[in-house]
């Protein structure tokens, strides 16, 4: 657990994904999911920022889902453009950022992280 703090955790199986979601929801932690693809240039553009945000917001869980690897998850979450960031709090989607929009992503995480710790 401690080793995962401050990291972006890659979910390579549907089981791992479900488990991480449940864990985050139980702990009432803010979850930030990055739906990404290996062939997506904009995903590579924003990856360093996401890693930095994961180091900053250690109270939040940062998950990464490759849309080719977990196709059904991407479909269920209606991901059509990459990257898509979904912010979840206690099982509810509270924000969605489509595209590598640095300021918008930072602002969304800051907003929800503030209310989560309050």
């Amino acid at each position: 657990m401690a080793s995962e703090e401050g990291q972006v955790i890659s979910c390579h199986t549907v089981e791992a994904w479900t488990q991480q979601l449940e864990k985050g929801n139980q702990n009432k932690k803010l979850i930030v999911v990055d739906f990404t693809a290996s062939w997506c240039g904009p995903c590579r553009f924003i990856a360093p920022l996401l890693a930095e945000l994961a180091r900053t917001y250690t109270n939040a869980t940062f998950l990464k889902v490759d849309v080719d690897e977990l196709k059904t998850v991407a479909q269920d979450w209606a991901v059509e453009a990459m990257p898509t960031f979904v912010i979840i709090k206690e099982g509810t989607i509270v924000d969605r950022v489509v595209g590598a929009k640095k300021d918008e992503l930072q602002q969304a995480i800051a907003k929800h992280a503030a209310t989560a710790s309050a």
Binding site: A37, W39, C40, G41, P42, C43, F45, I46, E80, A81, M82, P83, V98, G99, A100, K101, K102
Partner: peptide, 11 residues
């Protein structure tokens, strides 16, 4: 700012 879909990337 940037976004991609299964066909292309747009910056």
């Amino acid at each position: 700012s940037a976004v991609g879909n299964s066909y292309f990337d747009a910056y």
